[in-house]
Amino acid sequence: MRPHVTLFIQCLLDTFHPAVCQSMLDVFKHLDVPVIIPKDQTCCGQPAFNAGYRLEARKAASHFLDVFQNSDVIVCPSGSCVYMIRHHYPLLFENDPVRLNRSREICTRIYEFSEFLVDVGSAYSGQVTYHDSRHLARGLGIREQPRQLIRHVSGATLVEMSDSDRCCGFGGAFSIKYPDISSALVDDKVHAILASGADTGVGCDMGCLMNIEGRLSRMGSGIRVMHIAELLANGLGKGSRP
């Protein structure tokens, strides 16, 4: 099954604002992220909790835990519902070890909508350096976006290599037609990576990455090369949040 997200729709959106829910679906569709919306979901229990009715809130919260028990990543378009689940569920279930565990566990998988889009919640341990591929950086002007994403990966430190936007020497058929020039270029790139002290090289173009990976492998280097998607998918849901 493709990775997907499970949506928890806040009751106010669910009952008053279906158009907003649809907008959220449109965003996920645009990103090509499949969504699941469990039909049995109702309410996180916040109205009762805020009014002081903890017993009633606990019932609603138990229902929530049951409905979302097997969901992988949960996204909810409401800050206060996510806050309720992350901060008040442990309080509600402090005398119920089983549900306390389940709520703690679900806390690591639930994201507010905008948080999910930006923070992703990936986790990776290491020093990551980023290669600016030519079409992306100079052609599309995309330099900052991948760096922002890397900075949002919990446990990853972005270390810049020198001349990160200098060509790696791939160039498609060029690497086969002019192997000597191509190798000289990739050597420079690899040295820049080594000098940065990073243990992982990340980029957004697989051609470049194959070229760099191939050269590193031949040199017997242990540096890992990853597409940014791989990095982001790493430890999904395990990333700590601010």
């Binding site: 039909k39 109702t42 109205p47 009715y53 809130a57």
Partner: peptide, 14 residues
């Protein structure tokens, strides 16, 4: 109180 009891019953019976 009665309203919230009713409410809690509803939200646990979709």
């Amino acid at each position: 109180k009665a309203s919230f009891v009713l409410w809690s019953w509803l939200v646990t019976h979709p």
